[in-house]
Simulated assay, not measured.
Amino acid sequence: MMRLSLVGIGSGNPEHLTLQAIRTLEGADVILLPRKGDEKTELADVRRIIVRDILQTNPKVVEFDYPQRDEKTPKYLDGVNTWHDELAAIWAGLITAEASQKPGDDLCVALMVWGDPSLYDSTLRIAERLLAQGMTLSVSVVPGVTSLQMLTAAHAIPLNDLGAPVIITTGRQLRDQGWPQGADTVAVMLDGQCSFQHLQPNGVRIWWGAYVGMPQQILCEGPLSDVADDIIKARAKARAEHGWIMDIYLLRR
């Protein structure tokens, strides 16, 4: 039997690892560690620090290069599915190679996931592809602290108004569909275009954060009409300085 554990590791601060996450990683035979190019070495470095400084065992670490998604594909979901197929093929090859070195024994493979595997992350969908291909594999999830939790904690605000719903969506949806119906609070993830600038700003407040939980964390909040330009400039500057950026924001009207 081969076991694959998808372990949420939070949003960049090793201190946010749960005891369950640590124990799962310590019990792994192999940890797969993705490299996402020179511009995003910090993402791999956080994972390396966890293995080096936090784990009390010495699991084998296998690093692999993350394929780039073809953003020129006319249909967004077609490009994403092709990308996921490529990742599934890489995972399958690495897991099969490790299993061949332990014939007759169980193999425990772990993969550290930024944030939580269940919230706007692709690892569970990629794991489903392995199962669909017929791999004898059990998949488990260890939840992690999400960037949404880190955002509300950093700004010291509740996620929702009293008795009120929240909608979690993407920048692409906000830009193309406008304000979602059914809630006055909207959490927006995966927004590389600052899609809030397409909204009518009057009466809307924004709480924005980049690199939440990491040493380079940046925060900004206020009426959208007052701080939208500041956020756009801060985001562009941070991306230029670091070569990458992950940000998230909450809107409330």
Rank of each mutant, 00 (worst) to 15 (best):
N58T: 15
D38H: 12
A240Q: 14
E128V: 00
Q149E: 13
R172W: 06
I54Q: 02
V62F: 02
V204G: 07
S140Q: 12
G79H: 04
G134N: 10
M214P: 09
G104M: 04
Q68V: 15
H16V: 00
A28N: 05
P14G: 08
K75N: 14
E39R: 15
G12T: 07
Q181C: 11
I22E: 00
L159T: 12
V145N: 01
C194V: 06
W114T: 03
T136N: 14
P180H: 04
P223K: 14
C220A: 14
Y211S: 04
A234K: 10
Q177W: 02
L219K: 12
A92D: 10
V141L: 05
G213S: 08
L19I: 11
M214N: 09
A156W: 01
A127W: 01
R47F: 05
M1F: 07
R3S: 13
L199E: 01
G203I: 11
N13Q: 00
K72F: 14
I90T: 13
E39L: 15
P201K: 03
G213H: 09
G8L: 00
H155V: 12
Y120D: 00
I218V: 14
M112R: 06
D78K: 11
L137G: 08
R252M: 07
L33H: 05
N13R: 04
G171R: 07
V204C: 08
Q181E: 15
M150V: 12
D116Q: 06
V142R: 11
V80P: 00
A44P: 02
M246Y: 11
R172M: 08
N13L: 03
V80I: 15
K237W: 01
I95K: 06
V212S: 03
Y76A: 08
P34S: 08
A153F: 09
N81R: 12
I54G: 00
S140K: 10
V61A: 03
Q181T: 15
A99K: 13
L131S: 11
L151W: 01
A127T: 07
D116N: 06
L174P: 04
W83T: 01
L250N: 06
V141T: 11
L43Q: 09
L6S: 00
F196K: 01
K102L: 13
Q197K: 14
L4V: 03
A238N: 06
Q200C: 09
H242M: 13
K233L: 11
P74K: 10
T82A: 13
Q193T: 13
A127H: 02
E128S: 12
D226T: 14
Y120H: 02
L87V: 15
A210Q: 05
I50A: 10
G182E: 08
E26S: 11
L250A: 07
W207Q: 05
V51E: 10
G192P: 10
I167D: 05
K60N: 14
Q56K: 15
H16Q: 06
R239D: 00
D184H: 12
L55D: 06
K40G: 00
L124D: 00
L224I: 09
